[in-house]
Structures are given as structure tokens and as C-alpha cells.
Design a protein around this nucleic acid. Structure first.
Length: 565
RNA sequence: GCACCCGUAGCUCAGCGGAUUAGAGUACUUGGCUUCGAACCAAGUGGUCGCAGGUUCGAAUCCUGCCGGGUGUACCA
């Protein structure tokens, strides 16, 4: 596709001395293989009739042997056809260079991608499923477009939750219970103390709330007991997070949590106060006024303790200074959109050059009994990641029928189902958590694509020893045209998905490819006895490309292709 | 109140300026396994794209207003 765009670009330049952005679309097959509306775009700037422009362009394009058919249609569309054989040889050429689908748009630039950054106070819940999925996909898209990528798990290992933990632990738990319950015991006391705090607040009291804040302050001041408790709790929690991330098959290069940035953050705040950018309120809290915002950003609490803006401030500074980050991509929920707008404004105000991209995603909803939707919350009962993974694996295994498949393959299928669901829609759209849909193994789903890939791989494996004949001009690829056209789209899909950080485009693409492939497979024998040597060679080569693109596209989404399923 | 996001088939969602029939999955109806794996394929039923204006050769797509839902709006993250 890039090649076709380039040809048209040059033609436009030669004819009209204009630099046009060529957008190619894939119209209905009866119109052509590709279509462009450049003529209509140029009409305004050139002050000419679009059909006239299209006519001149067509005349020139017809002379190019790339196209088998060039036509004007409607108000000035140009429809193009390319012979299947030509597409096949263009693809051969594209594949002969390494890394089909990838590009170097980000060459020489460094990006920090932050995910899944779970709250350490509670067991890993589906509340952090999307930050892991979307963050991991963003990482892969950045890698595929040539960026130097640094990944960082910005752990929620600090802040008010710590105070709640300590209070809850002392009130409701013991060392014995903690030893046996681990993270689930910590989660239990966290929930219990939150309830207690809420009822206290309703009574108009704040004794416990103050006590929780005091513990946080003690921790900041290096109080031995506080430090010891913090380390104990965090160790338990981190172990759990690693286990879950391992099962999700995601990882990060760094785990610089909020705690890492507390001292640094306070130093930054002190500097801001000194330079007059920040100001201290009477109650001791510190704020920065931001242009265009009614609400200033609070960078230090009234009791002197740090909060998220304090640590995030230091995080931005650190990433620029230590990692020379040109860009930072932070995967968190839609609830934080406003805050990150403030943070970006703050960064700009203090001269941080790193471009801040808030990779936000919609909330996870649950269905109420009356059919309405509501955000999943601990009050309503969250689903834990551990449970989600267990159920998904059980369901995948149950579907294996007679096939003997390994535990590893079962896990790949389970993850394929869970992750693909996240990418089946725009990341900004709220997702409805529905057990059936989450584990869907048919239709527009991960396993559907995996299945298509497995079949292709099986054919390739079974025919690994088939001797290759030179295809050359001896085969027209007519039956393969749809598959070839679909393959040719891939690099553009990756580029767009990366530019917009919209991995659902890749999901849609691999699904379409699977569909085209299944259809092809249904009608065309690939390596049976009835197929000639030339056909066999041509078709197996096509399958090798399809197999590569399946694996590559799914890999971007964090999904692997099983051996069997 | 203000800001942001969202209202598209029964349900879950794509499409976000282009081409006589607005797509997919699911659900429902029907057909296809002695032929490289049926987690598949083929066909059908199903939509005043929330409502009303406007811009444009062309609007589900852009603008304005209204209605409905969600999220946020400094000491949670």
C-alpha cells in the first residue's frame, strides 16, 4: 500500500506540483482494489473541477505498470486495480526486508511506558486488567515503530493506603493471619478499615482518619515501626503482583513506585516554592495555579505529607533527567483524565520537555439486576484477577474436546480470550464485564484468530519437507487475491495503531485476516494431492506470510499462538 | 453549576467526511464434516445511526442547541 501511495504522490507532484497526503481506502471489491479521493481534496486548492483533476491523474497512472485498471468514478474518486500476481511480488519484496509491518517512525527517540501500576493495598483485581493490556500493547506498538522503549511499573506502594493498612492490621488482624492469608488478608483488613472510616466520617468524627494520616507521616519521617510495617506489607503484595503479571505474561524493566519518589517530590516542591511557581496556603498545603484550570493542582498536603501530584512531579523530572525520555505514556483509567491534564500543564509550566501522553481507558462496568450498568467497585464486589484467570483456563480446557493440548497452550487460549476482549473495542469505550463475553471463544475473539493461525501453522508443519518449485510467472494468484490484499494492509495498520495508540485496530485487522484466511481455506486446497507443484509452492509461501503476520499482530496484543487447540 | 466521555441492529461493539444495500460478533432460522483441523464456512431475519437545526458537491462522521447516561471537579490514586 505504501508503494501505491508513493506512486500517486509522485504523480500528483509531477502533474500539479502539489504535496498531497494520499489516503488509500479499500472500497467494495466491485469498484476496485484501492481507491483514493486526492482529486477531490486537490480541487479546492487548485480551484479546478475534481473530475478533471482525476482524469489527468488517471491518464498518468495508466502508464504505470503497477496498475491493471485505473478508473474515475462518482464525483472524482480514482479506483485502482492491481493484478494479484503483482501484489504477490510486491509482498515478496516487502518481506525480503526484515520485520514486515514495522517501521522506524520513532528512531532515535525514547519513550517511557507506564503500566500496570496496581494499588498494592488490595489483591490484583480486574480493575487493573486494562492498564496491563493497554500498556503492554502500547509498549509493543512503540517497539514496532522503532522507539527506544523503557517500561516502568509505577507501583501504588505509598500514600493513604499505607495508613489504612496499619490501622486495619492492628485492629482486625495478626501476624499469624497475615502469614496464612497473605495479600488476601491485607485486602480484607483494607476493606474493613475503609468501612470503619466511612462510618466514622458519617458520624462527623475524624479520629481514625487522622491516625491513618499520622502513620503516613511517620513513614515519611523514617519511623522504624512504620518502615518495618511498610516493608512487610509491600513484600507480600509485590510477590502477589509478580505472580499475576507472570500469569498475564507481562513485565516491566523498572518498578519505581511512588515511594521511590517521595523525597524527590518534596525537594521539587521546595524548589517550586523558592522560585515562586508554587505557593503555600495558610493551612500548610502547597498548590500550583495553572492557566486554564479553575482548580489548582495540590502538590503537598497540609500536614506536609506527599500525595500523588508530589510523586508524579518527581517522576516526570526523573524520567527526563535520568532516562532522557522524549515521551511518557501512562496507562490509567478515565477517572484520571482531568488530573493528567493538570499534570501535563504543570509539566509544561516547570519546563519539563518530555511529552506526556495519558493513555486512558474506559471503566469496567458490571450489570445490575435491573439491567442498568454501573462501574465495578469494591462495594459491589470486584472480580479478582486470580479468579478471572482460573475461570478462563477452565473454560479453555473444557473446550479442547479430543485434542491433547498442553497446559501452556490452555493458558495461551485463556489469555487470548481475555485480552482480545479488551481490544475488541476502542480503549476509551467503557467495557461491560460479562463472564460469557469475556471468555468468548468464537466469532470476534482471540481464540478465533488463534485457531486460524494454528491451522495455518499445522499445514506448514505437515508440509515442511515439500520441495519448493520456482513460482515466478507460472501462477497468477487469482484465488489468493483477497488474502494478498489483506496482508498488504498490515504495515499501515501498525503505523496508525501506534500513532493513535489504538491497539483495537490491530485486533480488528488480525480478525479480518483470519476471516479472509478461513474463507480461502474453505474453498481452495493448499497442499492436498490434487494440487500441482507450482500451486503448492505458491500457496505454502503465502501461508508462511500469513503465519508471520498472525504471530506478529497477536504479539502486539500480548497474545501468543498455541501449538494446538 | 462547569469540564470531559458516550448515546449506531434484541444485546455487546466497530465505522468518525466520501460512493445506489450503515458493518461485525452474539442471539434467532437454515444449509455444509468419507477431501490439508467444523473453536470453521455459506445463506437469511434484524437499524428513522438519541432529537432538532446548520456547514458541505457529499454528514452516523464536522458545528450549535436540546434530551438521556457515565466520569471528574485540591489534601484517594
Amino acid at each position: 500500500m505504501e508503494k501505491v501511495s508513493q506512486i500517486i504522490h509522485v504523480a500528483v507532484k509531477n502533474l500539479f506540483n502539489a504535496n498531497a497526503e494520499i489516503s488509500l481506502s479499500r472500497p467494495d471489491a466491485k469498484f476496485g482494489d484501492y481507491a483514493t479521493n486526492v482529486a477531490m481534496q486537490l480541487a479546492k486548492s487548485l480551484g479546478r473541477n475534481p473530475r478533471e483533476i482525476a482524469g489527468e491523474l488517471c491518464e498518468l497512472l495508466r502508464k504505470n505498470d503497477e496498475f491493471s485498471e485505473v478508473e474515475i468514478a462518482g464525483p472524482g474518486f480514482i479506483n485502482l486495480r492491481i493484478s494479484a500476481h503483482k501484489i504477490a511480488s510486491d509482498l515478496d519484496e516487502a518481506f525480503s526486508q526484515n520485520n514486515f509491518g514495522e517501521n522506524n517512525d520513532g528512531a532515535g527517540k525514547t519513550v517511557v511506558v507506564e503500566y500496570p501500576s496496581p494499588n498494592m493495598a488490595k489483591p490484583y483485581s480486574v480493575g487493573h486488567l486494562r492498564s496491563g493490556n493497554q500498556g503492554w500493547a502500547a509498549r509493543n506498538l512503540m517497539l514496532a515503530t522503532g522507539w527506544n522503549v523503557i517500561t516502568d511499573n509505577h507501583l501504588g506502594d505509598y500514600g493513604a493506603p499505607f495508613g489504612y493498612w496499619v490501622l486495619g492490621f492492628r485492629k482486625f488482624s495478626s501476624d499469624e493471619q497475615l502469614a496464612s492469608g497473605g495479600i488476601y488478608e491485607l485486602g480484607r483488613v483494607y476493606v474493613a478499615i475503609r468501612a470503619e472510616l466511612k462510618s466514622e466520617q458519617e458520624r462527623g468524627d475524624d479520629t481514625l482518619a487522622k491516625e491513618a494520616q499520622d502513620w503516613l507521616l511517620k513513614l515519611e519521617n523514617g519511623d522504624l515501626e512504620a518502615v518495618e510495617l511498610s516493608e512487610k506489607f509491600n513484600r507480600i503484595s509485590l510477590e502477589h503482583i509478580h505472580e499475576i503479571m507472570g500469569r498475564l505474561r507481562i513485565s516491566t524493566d523498572y518498578e519505581l513506585g511512588e515511594k521511590f519518589y517521595v523525597e524527590r517530590g518534596k525537594n521539587e516542591v521546595a524548589k517550586l516554592l523558592e522560585s515562586g511557581i508554587a505557593k503555600r496556603n495558610e493551612d500548610g498545603s502547597v498548590i500550583v495555579e495553572l492557566d486554564g484550570f479553575d482548580t489548582p493542582i495540590l502538590v503537598q498536603k497540609s500536614n506536609g505529607a506527599a500525595l500523588y501530584a508530589t510523586t508524579d512531579l518527581a517522576t516526570m523530572v526523573y524520567r527526563e533527567r535520568e532516562w532522557h525520555a522524549d515521551r511518557a505514556i501512562i496507562a490509567t483509567g478515565a477517572e484520571q483524565v482531568f488530573y493528567f491534564q493538570q499534570l501535563a500543564a504543570l509539566a509544561k509550566k516547570i519546563g519539563v520537555k518530555t511529552e506526556l501522553t495519558h493513555l486512558w481507558f474506559g471503566v469496567i462496568d458490571q450489570l445490575n439486576d435491573d439491567g442498568t450498568r454501573e462501574k465495578m467497585s469494591s462495594r459491589k464486589g470486584v472480580v479478582l484477577m486470580e479468579e478471572l484467570l482460573n475461570v478462563a483456563e477452565a473454560k479453555a480446557r473444557q473446550n479442547t474436546k479430543g485434542e491433547k493440548i498442553t497446559d501452556d497452550d490452555v493458558r495461551k487460549i485463556a489469555l487470548g480470550a481475555i485480552k482480545f476482549t479488551d481490544f475488541s473495542q476502542d480503549r476509551r469505550t467503557n467495557i461491560l464485564f460479562d463472564w460469557d463475553q469475556m471468555f468468548s471463544l468464537t466469532g470476534f475473539s482471540g481464540p478465533y484468530v488463534q485457531y486460524a493461525a494454528v491451522r495455518v501453522n499445522k499445514i506448514l508443519r505437515d508440509n515442511a519437507d515439500v520441495s519448493q518449485a520456482a513460482v515466478g510467472e507460472n501462477y497468477d494468484f487469482a484465488k489468493e487475491k483477497d488474502v494478498l490484499l489483506k496482508l498488504a494492509e498490515y504495515p499501515e495498520v501498525v503505523r496508525t495503531a501506534a500513532n493513535l495508540l489504538e491497539p483495537h485496530r490491530v485486533a480488528q485487522y488480525v480478525y479480518d485476516l483470519a476471516k479472509v484466511m478461513n474463507r480461502y481455506y474453505e474453498t481452495t486446497p493448499i497442499a492436498t494431492d490434487t494440487v500441482s507443484q507450482i500451486e503448492k509452492s505458491a500457496r505454502l509461501e503465502l501461508l508462511r506470510k500469513v503465519s508471520y503476520v498472525f504471530a506478529h499482530g497477536l504479539q502486539i496484543l500480548g497474545i501468543e499462538v498455541p501449538e494446538r487447540m
